[in-house]
Design a protein around this nucleic acid. Structure first.
Lengths: 182, 182
DNA sequence: TAGGCCATGTAACCGGTTACATGATTAG
DNA sequence: CTAATCATGTAACCGGTTACATGGCCTA
């Protein structure tokens, strides 16, 4: 999942500036499975425009800086649709929390407790953000994805809350440590 | 989650060569939340050795090429344990499948059907791999993580299987497309 | 005999992040 | 008066991947 695809996806919905693209990639319904920063947005926009996949127009605003609104060209839309129909890459999932959990014996009760409560609060806030998107949007496919997210995060939350004591009990338990994972 | 942390985590369990580290990062119990390639393992091992966090020794094998086994030094273990006790980064999750789903109207029935069945088979094979690790390992924390993975993947699977028809029904439905996500 | 596994390593490249530069306006 | 929001962009850097080089052994 690269900047190009994400930008094309956002522009497929509506015209937007680099700044708005960033906002949507961090706050909107896309935010829970992608994320990009300014440093990759602006150069990618320039490249996509040079390639003729998007077109930009400048807009003056009063009280605010000028901005450059980009929209998909016909070619851009065609190419994007085509790419969407190809088999997707597998999901990427990276979790430092799970690494810490897998080595819970090396942690302290405090460090583990903190990691767990942080995870729980973070999950809950993500879920309420998604509920917010859900309330504002009635596109069936966006709803499908949002419900998916809620369902999976709820499962995550349930497991962590129901099993946190087991994990906490392992803190500092050095005797359980060495073993061949082979 | 970088190469350094993962390598240290693997070596914390036991001495290993670069080649074994790669295997464990793609096949072992770590595989479902991390992944690295040779191109980052070998240079990182060299750097960690230069920094005195790990120590390598060469071993001759008959019928097989020599290999270099690395193990944690005292300093390496101390630094690793310390880093484990710091609050972890939030999980990273990237999914092209969800992007495709969010734009299901632009897909074809075939492209969506394929994406779904690929996801389902992939999830099932990951889950059976985890069940395999579970059968071979009795470290409580590793089991905790494995059960967590199974629980979350099952939730993913359930949602997809129970709701795939809704998604499929949207394929090619252009009329439902334009809308402001605002 | 072809392909896969064992095993280490390098070089080119790439896709991204972080930090910086700039500057007006608005809300607290 | 300070901080945040709006807005665009660049440069340095970094962490990784892909592909290549090398080569012996084993299995189908």
């Amino acid at each position: 999942m690269n900047a190009k695809t994400l930008i094309l996806a956002i522009l497929n919905f509506q015209e937007a500036s680099g700044y708005e693209i960033r906002k949507r990639s961090t706050e909107g319904p896309f935010s829970y499975f992608v994320d990009i920063s300014f440093g990759s947005i602006y150069p990618t926009l320039a490249k996509l425009e040079a390639d003729g996949l998007i077109a930009g127009r400048s807009e003056q605003q009063d009280g605010k800086p000028d901005r450059k609104l980009y929209s998909l060209t016909e070619r851009g839309r065609a190419e994007f649709v085509k790419s969407l129909r190809e088999p997707p890459q597998q999901d990427q999932y990276k979790s430092e929390f799970l690494l810490i959990s897998m080595l819970a014996e090396l942690g302290t009760r405090e460090s583990l407790e903190r990691a767990i409560t942080d995870r729980v609060t973070h999950l809950k806030s993500e879920m309420s953000a998604i509920r917010g998107h859900l309330a504002e949007c009635d596109r069936a496919s966006t709803r499908w994805v949002a419900e998916f997210g809620l369902h999976c995060m709820q499962a995550d939350l349930d497991y962590v809350e129901q099993n946190k004591d087991k994990l906490l009990a392992l803190a500092g338990n050095r005797t359980a440590l060495p073993d061949a994972v082979e």
